[in-house]
Design a protein around this nucleic acid. Structure first.
Lengths: 365, 365
DNA sequence: TTGTATGCGTTATCAT
DNA sequence: ATGATAACGCATACAA
């Protein structure tokens, strides 16, 4: 296909002029410009953006590296990143399924020269040194950073507080035996949620019964499988907090098949506030996480970082995670409590997600 | 950071040698190789892949363009693409939210020179000519192609048959009044599902009551909102087929709040077989779509296309969509039918997804 | 306003 | 086995 050289030749000008016509940063004679555009159109000339990138050292592309792509959460994060990137005319070079830091390293290398910045969710703490090596070449924004790691820009969810709030709410409803279904081992978000769970119990003057901390992996089946453990434990827990909604949903299904009523016999709370949470029966009490906003914030942070002077301090942003009370935890008291199946009147969709708003309440520390 | 030149200088060799050491395609003296690697390591040299791409005209990257990123479907498609691409050491340059062909055009241009192939889900039929322009520069694989479009490689879901099968099943259960909740206007998959719906009714000797074709948009709320229309129609439909699971779930919620029992009072069938479908109450009868497999197939097709000679015929692949009968449509007869809430015994997880298998049954035409 | 020439960081084709 | 050197396609400083 036509290159800038062929266009120049056909238009009877130099390649510099053609370049100028397209980049409109230098004045160029309207007539010649017209002619160049004409020729370019006829030849269907498309500039080679790889070459542009090499020459300008600017690719208008962000690298995005995630450990996984399962579930709505990551999907929403990507959507947020893509949305905001799009606004600023950036593209996304995606790479996921990084189980270890080796993967992160090789993927980063493959991205070198093709991105202006990297938005990275590191798989484990060992990624630390690799992050350092990457940072020397390209700006990095960390997603769900580990606390100890680095002085790097980052955006995270306030998992700890969200979880604490959720469990505190259960406690306030009178629950003494609360079980927890964990996320995959090594997952930062999941670990913080567990920490929040413990903290809430501690603050309630109870200590955690370790037998009630049931290992999970964020998938529905883990929640489903956790059911037996929960019901067979003695004394039987009256509430369960799942580290994410998928597992909460799996658990709900299992409980219902056992003839266990939710929330009457056992209360269930999830985390994430996935799209369908409000449409379940019973509707799922959960902690709202604006995954899409997380992605958008990451991009904004990146853009700021890129135009900041190298020495400036790292910005650490935390997106609030707030409890969204619905029916699965048992209505606290008044509110619009009951309703549910049976009432013909309660047709209010119980809007399952509180949109964008929350995103910008991110706290900077 | 260090470039190949600096490594060459520090190692006392030419840049050509350094290049050879890294690409191991030309024999090089073990000693000098050793020395080069040493120096490269010390300088932490990473080859610039943009420059490599320019020189080799090979980027090991696939462009992926989707109209949207909402919901599990697209997310799974991306996951499939990423998975398979990863296997072959390719990366993904992602771009979504293309509502019209203008967007597709500009995004394609921005990708030129940075991808070896483009996996494209076109937003509308007007993209036809643009696809042609793109194809002249880079191999293209179409996702969910419109039938009329081009002689281009493509992978699609067999929406028509899947939908027909679903509705035929409802008809076989005795349902005469069946409603349909459509997908977003212009969406190929959604339109094919509608076509399958109509066809099934036609084959059953009934014609479609257009008032029962209710506009939707693939979101939960559309299903929720469709409830009124459905219940108020007379004669009242005894079954509803939603163009995707999200809407089916929204509908289930609305029906339950109205005190309408599913499947006793009204049967519901969805499309997609999302992860939670089997965990709902009642579990959702739906049409299984291997979105992840779709993505993988697209990559495989692309790889084949790239090593095929330019003149060869386009490959059109269709991934089967098969009905997955669960409880929401009413058990046909025997089977493990009833159970549901109440039975303590039925703890079989009702595996919600039939994994990979189906993907490779893709039919080539 | 326009053209010339150099550089971006590689790979690859020649020589040697 | 290794070293010059010409691409790759474009942007841009400098000259004119």
């Amino acid at each position: 296909m036509a290159t800038i050289r062929e266009v120049a030749l056909a238009a009877g000008v130099s390649i510099a002029t053609v370049s100028r016509v397209f980049n409109k940063n230098t004045p160029v004679n309207p007539d010649t410009a017209e002619r160049v555009l004409q020729v370019a159109g006829r030849l269907d000339y498309w500039p080679n953006s790889a070459a542009q990138g090499l020459a300008t050292r600017c690719t208008r592309t962000f690298g995005v590296m995630l450990p996984d792509l399962f579930g709505e959460f990551y999907s929403d994060v990507i959507r947020g990143i893509d949305q905001q990137a799009r606004v600023h005319q950036y593209q996304i070079l995606l790479s996921s399924s990084h189980s270890n830091s080796e993967d992160v390293l090789s993927a980063s290398r493959a991205m070198l020269g093709r991105i202006d910045g990297l938005i990275l969710m590191a798989p484990d703490e060992s990624s630390h040194e690799i992050v350092e090596r990457v940072r020397r070449r390209v700006p990095v924004v960390l997603l769900s950073p580990r606390t100890r790691v680095d002085d790097c820009h980052s955006v995270g969810i306030d998992n700890f507080c969200g979880a604490k709030e959720a469990v505190a709410h259960l406690v306030s409803l009178g629950h003494r035996q609360v079980a927890f279904i964990t996320g995959p081992e090594g997952n930062v978000d999941a670990e913080e949620r567990l920490r929040g769970f413990r903290q809430a119990l501690t603050e309630a003057g109870r200590d955690t019964d370790e037998a009630l901390v049931i290992p999970g992996d964020f998938h529905e089946s883990a929640g489903f499988d956790a059911c037996s453990t929960i019901l067979e434990h003695s004394p039987r827990p009256t509430a369960v907090f799942a580290a994410n909604d998928s597992m909460a949903i799996g658990l709900l299904a299992a409980l219902q098949r056992r003839g266990c009523r939710v929330p009457e016999d056992i209360a269930v709370v999830g985390f994430d506030n996935v799209a369908i949470a409000g449409y379940l029966n019973p509707s799922l009490t959960t902690v709202n996480v604006d995954a899409c906003g997380l992605g958008r914030q990451a991009v904004d942070l990146m853009l700021n970082a890129m135009e900041a002077k190298p020495g400036s301090d790292p910005v650490r942003q935390v997106i609030p995670a707030v409890l969204k009370v619905r029916r699965s935890c048992g209505a606290p008291s008044g509110a619009d409590g009951e309703s549910g199946a049976g009432s013909v009147l309660s047709m209010s969709p119980d809007f399952p997600r509180q949109e964008p708003k929350a995103a910008n309440r991110g706290l900077t520390s």
